[in-house]
């Protein structure tokens, strides 16, 4: 059985250096559609028309993307007449539109952040991406972030899924059991706007309709690094702005605001 020990040693450290150095391995993120300039308003309207969720709208010759509604269906990327530009970033978490820029929890939590995850009707993808953070390739323990099995010890409630009716009760109970100060993160487009499930007889159409959300992480699913980035923002440890290309940040009237940190 000692071979496990040698096996562990021989493989060495495989964890990413992120956030101290950028992570560029192919496939760590699916990327995201960004605002794209076309040569005419017709072309921009044509580009917007392929989106099944209305996440793209045309502002004269510019196709503008609202990531909060995007379900990463890639219909604006492949096999369409006017593809949008896609960039390979993963730092797109932003303060919720309703609550404005989220205030980070502050230094006591900087290196000891306890996260409680609740699956509120998730399809399994967001949950699996959250689970990957425990993967040695990400290893969030090295950053002092831990998943906790009890809400009593949790600082952050990370909710995935559109809040199914049957999960609303357990979700609210979990929130109430958490001590102050606490922050609520909605991970994934379903958790922000309901995604493909929308608002229906069994879905509340996103966490904001049942709980005050501080930070939103668009994505279907958001890749592990996007979730990690949001957790660092919550802990007050992310130094960069959340959108790597300020030009592409949606304006405040239709989307999340840019979070500026000290």
């Amino acid at each position: 059985m000692s071979f496990w020990f040698w096996h562990g040693l021989r493989n060495g450290i495989q964890s990413t250096r992120y956030p101290h150095a950028p992570e560029t391995a192919p496939g760590v993120t699916p990327g995201r559609p960004v605002d794209t300039q076309f040569s005419s308003a017709e072309e921009a309207a044509e580009a917007a028309a392929v989106c099944p969720t209305g996440a793209i709208h045309a502002e004269s010759a510019r196709a503008v993307v609202d990531l909060r509604k995007c379900i990463w269906c890639q219909r604006c990327r492949f096999g369409c007449p006017r593809p949008l530009h896609w960039e390979t970033s993963h730092t797109w978490a932003a303060g919720s539109a309703a609550r404005g820029a989220a205030s980070p929890l502050g230094s006591p939590f900087g290196h000891s952040l306890h996260v409680m995850v609740v699956d509120a009707g998730d399809c399994g993808a967001c949950l699996n991406e959250v689970k990957q953070l425990n993967n040695p390739l990400y290893n969030i323990h090295r950053l002092g972030i831990f998943f906790t099995p009890t809400p009593r010890a949790a600082d952050v409630l990370l909710v995935v899924g559109p809040v199914s009716e049957n999960m609303k009760g357990p979700l609210l109970k979990t929130y109430e059991a958490m001590p102050e100060p606490k922050r609520v993160l909605a991970a994934g487009t379903c958790a922000i706007t309901g995604g493909v499930f929308g608002r229906s007889f069994m879905s509340h159409g996103g966490v904001p309709s049942v709980l005050p959300v501080d930070l939103e992480i668009p994505g279907d699913p958001p890749p592990p690094l996007a979730i990690l980035d949001a957790l660092l923002l919550t802990a007050g440890r992310a130094k960069h702005s959340t959108l790597s290309n300020p030009e592409t940040a949606p304006s405040p009237d239709h989307g999340p605001r840019l979070v500026k940190l000290p």
């Binding site: 192919p26 496939g27 990463w72 269906c73 993808a125």
Partner: peptide, 15 residues
Amino acid sequence: LRASAAFSGHRYLFG
């Protein structure tokens, strides 16, 4: 998952 995304553009083969 990374190989799926590098190949198809999506880690869970959506779209």
